[in-house]
């Protein structure tokens, strides 16, 4: 890591050999930068950065949709209120269908995760914005929170019988230990796949958008590149919603394991 140019290869902006020609910086959009002050200022845990800005905007969207939008409490809702009620009903029905009626007390928790990821994903689609959910630190914490919640709730609710999750009684006794090892591994891989799925999808989409945008620098293929950016952008709008949905529904599935480990 001593010499940045050597370690990052052709895609590094600092590489003098490629400064003149095509220059891709697909990863620069994920950089954490202080909002105030210079580029190179150090980033402490309390520094107000672009992470702060875009997360705050997500919070503001939640406030706008759920506090300002529903302030009329109308029996016949206007558009914003219908959207808020639609989102409420969507997640409520999801947790009721997937996890069960007794899981409704986790609804605010699941809904918080859903709304944060949804708005962070959608706000990240604004050009030159920053996407917090593409960062493994962010999604890792979200997934770890889910993992810890599931594990703690599982043991508090079921005690030691929660371990029955790993002892598959429907399988023959001989292969149960093997299955237990596999189940245990898959249980601990859950937070990894849970977080990397979200961060990876977002990173991949945004990096591809940037690469296509980089191709637009070449006049001959720039119309194609712009067309490609448009198409991928449409796909990314879909991915932004689906990844929020998938993260939420997997949270519900994991919670179901915690509440009902035996089926």
């Amino acid at each position: 890591m001593a010499d940045p140019v050597a370690t990052t290869g052709v895609l590094t902006a600092g590489d003098p050999a490629h400064a003149e020609g095509l220059s891709f910086h697909p990863m620069d959009q994920f950089m954490v930068k202080p909002l105030f002050g210079d580029y190179g200022d150090p980033v402490y845990w309390y520094t107000i950065t672009n992470v702060t800005l875009w997360m705050a905007l997500a919070v503001l969207c939640v406030v706008g949709l759920f506090v300002l939008g529903t302030s009329r409490r109308a029996i016949i809702p206007n558009r914003v209120q219908s959207v808020a009620e639609l989102a409420y009903g969507f997640v409520y029905k999801m947790i009721e269908d997937v996890t069960g009626r007794d899981a409704v007390k986790f609804f605010p928790y699941v809904f918080t995760l859903f709304l944060f990821i949804l708005f962070a994903n959608f706000l990240a689609l604004i050009p030159s914005s920053f996407s917090p959910t593409s960062h493994i630190a962010v999604t890792g914490l979200l997934a770890l929170a889910v993992f810890l919640t599931v594990t703690i709730v599982g043991f508090v609710k079921n005690g030691a019988s929660f371990l029955g999750l790993f002892w598959v009684t429907s399988a023959p006794l001989a292969i149960r230990p093997v299955l237990a090892v596999i189940e245990l591994i898959s249980y601990f891989v859950r937070p990894v796949s849970h977080s990397i799925r979200l961060a990876g999808n977002l990173t991949a989409g945004h990096a591809v958008l940037k690469v296509f945008a980089g191709f637009a620098q070449v006049a001959a293929i720039s119309p194609l590149a712009v067309l490609g950016v448009t198409a991928i952008y449409g796909l990314e709008v879909l991915v932004a919603f689906i990844q929020a949905y998938v993260f939420t529904i997997l949270t519900c599935v994991y919670l179901k394991d915690a509440l009902h480990p035996n089926h």
Partner: peptide, 26 residues
């Protein structure tokens, strides 16, 4: 994680100098 031109070195997602900030604001 930043080179002399203000560009990212490696994947910014893996830069642990920024983890604390992201986690706090998250």
């Amino acid at each position: 994680c930043v080179n002399s031109l203000g560009s990212a070195i490696g994947m910014p997602q893996l830069c642990d100098a920024w983890f604390a900030n992201q986690i706090f604001w998250l």
